[in-house]
Simulated assay, not measured.
Amino acid sequence: MPFIEESDLLELHKDIDKAQIINERLLDQIKIKNKELKSSKIQRNVLGATTGLFIFGLLGLFLFNAGRLSNPNNLEQQNNLLVSIDSLDAIKVRIDNLREQNQELSLVKEFYLAKNFLEKEKVYSVQVKSFVDNNVTLASEALTNTLFVKTNPFYSYSLGNFETLKEAQLFRKQLVDIGFKDAFVASYKEGKRIQIEDPY
């Protein structure tokens, strides 16, 4: 029957408390990012509506000026028409820029949705390294296919997010073949490691 020292048990409780504090901080950061996404979406919608109204106003002004240009010999009226065409080109460039920003915001939203899904579902990943301290240079927030998790007393770095154990085992084999001899498969849920899985 396994025996655990009281001091080790106290250390485990301390580590669990620390992990809960870290998880709460991460949840707060996710909430802040979600608020930022919502506010940027509102700003994008307001900007789009304002741009649409501006375009319609310019179009109305253009049509109004075109109606007034009944005499082509009037040079001043022709110059006004050229200014309006230049303004329309500038607006088209602005609309293209807004479309690109909209696509970038959609990618950010998809990233956070995928990250939320991964935290709620059980996933399998292949751990390739452990660190004593938090080496954040390896854990990029932009990489949704990696996990950087506190597994007391170490920080573990895992690659891949797989729905099935078989997929993770195949990926582990590929990593072992290229030199990661100590790689192993573990299951994770809600950002915590559940258990180390059978490697084969």
Rank of each mutant, 00 (worst) to 15 (best):
residue 16 I to Y: 11
residue 143 L to S: 14
residue 85 I to D: 04
residue 118 L to W: 04
residue 61 L to M: 06
residue 186 A to S: 13
residue 66 A to I: 04
residue 139 A to K: 03
residue 13 H to L: 15
residue 157 Y to H: 04
residue 86 D to T: 14
residue 15 D to C: 06
residue 92 K to E: 05
residue 149 V to T: 11
residue 144 T to K: 13
residue 27 L to V: 03
residue 50 T to I: 05
residue 167 E to K: 09
residue 26 L to S: 08
residue 124 Y to M: 09
residue 176 V to G: 01
residue 98 L to P: 04
residue 181 K to I: 07
residue 66 A to E: 10
residue 137 T to W: 00
residue 132 V to M: 00
residue 68 R to W: 11
residue 74 N to G: 09
residue 62 F to H: 07
residue 38 K to P: 03
residue 49 A to K: 09
residue 168 A to N: 07
residue 44 R to M: 15
residue 26 L to C: 02
residue 13 H to P: 00
residue 74 N to V: 05
residue 24 E to G: 00
residue 14 K to Q: 12
residue 106 S to Y: 02
residue 58 L to M: 10
residue 176 V to L: 00
residue 167 E to G: 09
residue 176 V to R: 03
residue 97 N to V: 07
residue 61 L to I: 02
residue 100 E to R: 07
residue 183 A to W: 03
residue 134 N to W: 00
residue 157 Y to F: 13
residue 130 S to A: 15
residue 166 K to M: 03
residue 7 S to H: 12
residue 33 K to Y: 07
residue 156 S to K: 13
residue 139 A to H: 05
residue 82 L to W: 06
residue 165 L to W: 02
residue 167 E to M: 05
residue 25 R to P: 00
residue 98 L to A: 10
residue 181 K to D: 12
residue 47 L to I: 09
residue 39 S to I: 09
residue 132 V to A: 00
residue 113 L to K: 11
residue 3 F to C: 11
residue 8 D to I: 03
residue 161 N to V: 11
residue 105 L to R: 05
residue 81 L to H: 09
residue 171 F to H: 10
residue 121 E to N: 13
residue 177 D to A: 14
residue 7 S to K: 15
residue 73 N to C: 08
residue 100 E to F: 04
residue 132 V to F: 00
residue 157 Y to D: 00
residue 39 S to R: 02
residue 81 L to I: 06
residue 166 K to W: 01
residue 129 K to H: 03
residue 93 V to S: 13
residue 178 I to L: 06
residue 108 V to I: 08
residue 156 S to M: 15
residue 12 L to E: 14
residue 135 N to F: 01
residue 26 L to Q: 13
residue 128 V to D: 06
residue 95 I to L: 07
residue 64 F to T: 08
residue 33 K to P: 04
residue 10 L to C: 05
residue 132 V to Y: 00
residue 109 K to I: 08
residue 65 N to F: 02
residue 143 L to M: 10
residue 139 A to E: 03
residue 61 L to Y: 13
residue 35 K to A: 11
residue 179 G to D: 09
residue 72 P to H: 03
residue 92 K to R: 09
residue 150 K to Y: 07
residue 52 G to E: 02
residue 40 S to F: 01
residue 168 A to R: 04
residue 24 E to K: 06
residue 34 N to P: 02
residue 165 L to T: 08
residue 7 S to V: 08
residue 161 N to D: 10
residue 164 T to L: 05
residue 77 Q to H: 10
residue 39 S to M: 05
residue 53 L to F: 08
residue 57 G to F: 14
residue 48 G to E: 01
residue 110 E to I: 02
residue 174 Q to T: 15
residue 42 I to W: 00
residue 198 D to T: 04
residue 97 N to E: 12
residue 36 E to L: 11
residue 149 V to M: 09
residue 112 Y to L: 12
residue 12 L to R: 12
residue 78 Q to N: 12
residue 189 K to G: 02
residue 72 P to Q: 07
residue 66 A to N: 12
residue 97 N to L: 07
residue 1 M to S: 12
residue 115 K to P: 08
